[in-house]
């Protein structure tokens, strides 16, 4: 060995650990999805046929990816303005905002999910306000709806968007804003023509993390979404742990893996293209 590869010596233990406990299990998942029967004795395409030939399964795949995209859209609509305020804020407020952005990340996902049950429930905060103001006669049904789930995921996943976004925001040269304004551009034009292209890589990195996390957020999906909204994670859990049909569970898991990876690749590519127009 020696030479160039010799420098990778210290990475070898982690590489071996990943090979044994990350790559090998994922390969096993692919293999298991090609067993025909639950006893796992014979290979065949039966599970894949069963999955792909049922329109309901396609709907679940679509719903899962849409849920991720809705969570991405909602976090961007709220998170981007917060990041713009962060960019213009004095140093003390920047640190405070950063702390607020990171804090939810360190309070467990289960805790955050629980918070939204209290807020969105029949006797929850939102209904107290809506009924108190006389905006509706009956309590709104927010738990066990997709709207409630998207609202919850917006808070649960927003820190993942904010971290990379705030990083690129703080690196923007303030002179560029001044130049844009003095050339007569409105703040909106400056936002879309100067700031957005500059933060595109960070924005894409954040969107990618939000999408990956929202589509696999089993507990939030099942507790807030309830049993009537079916997404791929619930199907995987149901098939693996309740029905004990491992080959079918593996088929659904591989589908989740491939479909999420495909969308992530598109988001990453879009970020590179949007960023590339400026950075050359």
């Amino acid at each position: 060995m020696g030479g160039r590869l010799g420098g990778f010596g210290p990475a070898l233990p982690l590489g071996l650990a990943y090979a044994a406990f990350f790559v090998a299990p994922l390969l096993m998942l692919f293999v298991v999805s090609f067993y025909t029967d639950e006893k796992m004795t014979e290979f065949g395409l039966d599970q894949w046929r069963r999955f792909l030939l049922d329109a309901f399964h396609w709907k679940v795949v679509g719903d899962t990816l849409m849920l991720g995209l809705k969570a991405v859209a909602a976090t961007v609509v709220l998170g981007l303005p917060l990041a713009l305020v962060y960019r213009a804020a004095p140093p003390f407020w920047q640190r405070a905002l950063l702390f607020v952005a990171v804090m939810p990340l360190l309070t467990s996902v289960v805790v955050r999910t629980f918070a939204w049950i209290v807020i969105l429930g029949r006797e929850g905060v939102v209904n107290k306000i809506v009924l108190g103001l006389g905006l509706a006669a009956d309590p709104l049904r927010l738990l066990q709806t997709e709207l409630g789930l998207v609202i919850s995921l917006t808070q649960i996943e927003m820190p993942l968007l904010l971290l990379p976004l705030l990083a690129v925001m703080s690196r923007i040269d303030p002179n560029l804003m001044d130049a844009s304004a003095s050339l007569g551009a409105s703040p909106w034009r400056t936002l879309f023509r100067v700031i957005l292209p500059l933060v595109a890589p960070g924005l894409a990195a954040g969107c990618l993390l939000v999408f990956a996390s929202a589509t696999t957020a089993f507990i939030s999906q099942s507790v807030i979404g309830g049993g009537r909204l079916v997404y791929l994670p619930a199907m995987i859990w149901q098939q693996a742990m309740v029905v004990s049909n491992w080959p079918f569970a593996a088929t659904v898991a591989v589908t989740l893996l491939l479909s999420v990876s495909a969308v992530i690749a598109v988001i990453a590519y879009a970020g590179r293209v949007a960023g590339g127009r400026i950075h050359g």
Binding site: P233, I236, A250, L256, S261
Partner: peptide, 12 residues
């Protein structure tokens, strides 16, 4: 990568 897929893979 979806954590749930890895979780199931590790179990199997």
């Amino acid at each position: 990568l979806p954590g749930l897929a890895f979780g199931l893979a590790a179990l199997m």
